[in-house]
Amino acid sequence: SLEELLKLARHALRHGEEIHVLDRVITDEHEIKRLIEELERLI
């Protein structure tokens, strides 16, 4: 769900981890922040 993805993204950002989204691995902090902003808009 989007909520789950948002939780994962926030966790990854906090802990400096990578996040796997739709067969992509996002490691860049700015990309993760952008993902979080997009998800928050959708929810």
Rank of each mutant, 00 (worst) to 15 (best):
S1W: 15
S1M: 13
S1F: 14
S1P: 11
S1N: 13
S1V: 11
S1Y: 15
S1T: 12
L2F: 08
L2Q: 03
L2M: 08
L2A: 06
L2V: 07
E3Q: 11
E3D: 08
E3T: 10
E3P: 06
E3F: 11
E4S: 09
E4W: 11
E4Q: 11
E4T: 09
E4G: 07
E4P: 03
L5A: 04
L5Y: 05
L6R: 02
L6T: 01
L6H: 02
L6A: 02
L6P: 00
L6W: 03
K7G: 07
K7R: 14
K7L: 12
K7E: 15
L8K: 13
L8T: 09
L8N: 08
L8D: 07
L8R: 13
A9Y: 13
A9H: 02
A9D: 00
A9V: 10
A9E: 00
R10K: 14
R10L: 15
R10I: 15
R10N: 10
R10G: 05
R10P: 00
R10C: 05
R10V: 14
R10F: 11
R10M: 14
H11M: 06
H11W: 09
H11S: 06
A12Y: 02
A12L: 02
A12T: 02
A12G: 04
A12W: 02
A12R: 01
L13N: 02
L13G: 01
L13Q: 04
L13P: 00
R14S: 14
R14A: 15
R14G: 07
R14Q: 15
R14M: 15
R14N: 12
R14P: 01
H15F: 12
H15W: 12
H15I: 06
H15M: 10
H15R: 07
H15C: 06
H15N: 12
H15K: 08
H15G: 05
H15Q: 07
G16R: 08
G16M: 04
G16N: 09
G16D: 04
E17R: 10
E17A: 12
E17N: 11
E17P: 02
E17Q: 14
E17F: 13
E17Y: 15
E17C: 09
E17S: 13
E18K: 12
E18M: 10
E18Q: 13
E18G: 15
E18A: 15
E18V: 14
E18I: 11
E18C: 06
I19L: 15
I19P: 01
I19T: 02
I19E: 01
I19M: 13
I19A: 04
I19R: 01
H20M: 12
H20G: 04
H20F: 10
H20K: 14
H20N: 09
H20V: 14
H20A: 09
V21S: 04
V21R: 02
V21Q: 04
V21K: 02
V21I: 14
V21E: 03
V21P: 01
V21L: 15
V21M: 12
V21N: 03
L22W: 15
L22F: 15
L22P: 05
L22D: 13
L22I: 08
D23K: 02
D23W: 03
D23V: 03
D23T: 03
R24G: 06
R24K: 12
R24Y: 09
R24A: 07
R24E: 06
R24I: 09
R24C: 05
R24N: 06
R24W: 10
R24S: 07
V25N: 05
V25W: 10
V25Q: 05
V25G: 03
V25H: 08
V25C: 04
I26H: 04
I26M: 07
I26N: 01
I26A: 04
I26D: 01
I26G: 02
T27S: 14
T27M: 07
T27F: 07
T27G: 09
D28N: 11
D28T: 12
D28C: 04
D28Y: 06
D28Q: 10
D28H: 09
E29V: 14
E29F: 13
E29K: 15
E29M: 15
E29S: 14
E29A: 15
E29Y: 14
E29G: 10
H30P: 06
H30L: 13
H30I: 12
H30G: 14
H30M: 13
H30Y: 13
E31P: 02
E31D: 11
E31I: 07
E31Y: 05
E31N: 06
E31R: 04
E31W: 05
I32A: 03
I32N: 00
I32D: 00
I32G: 01
K33D: 04
K33T: 09
K33V: 12
K33L: 14
K33I: 14
R34N: 10
R34A: 14
R34W: 12
R34H: 10
R34E: 12
R34Q: 14
L35S: 00
L35K: 01
L35N: 00
L35A: 02
L35P: 00
L35I: 08
I36N: 00
I36L: 03
I36K: 01
I36D: 00
E37T: 10
E37H: 11
E37W: 12
E37Y: 11
E37K: 12
E37Q: 12
E37V: 11
E37D: 11
E38Y: 15
E38G: 06
E38Q: 13
E38H: 14
E38A: 12
E38L: 13
L39G: 00
L39P: 00
L39H: 00
L39I: 10
L39T: 02
L39S: 00
L39W: 06
E40D: 05
E40G: 04
E40I: 12
E40K: 07
E40Q: 08
E40Y: 06
R41C: 04
R41I: 08
R41E: 06
R41N: 08
R41Y: 09
R41H: 09
R41T: 07
R41S: 08
R41Q: 09
R41V: 07
R41W: 10
L42D: 03
L42P: 00
L42V: 07
L42G: 04
L42F: 07
I43L: 13
I43V: 08
I43S: 03
I43N: 03
I43H: 04
I43F: 06
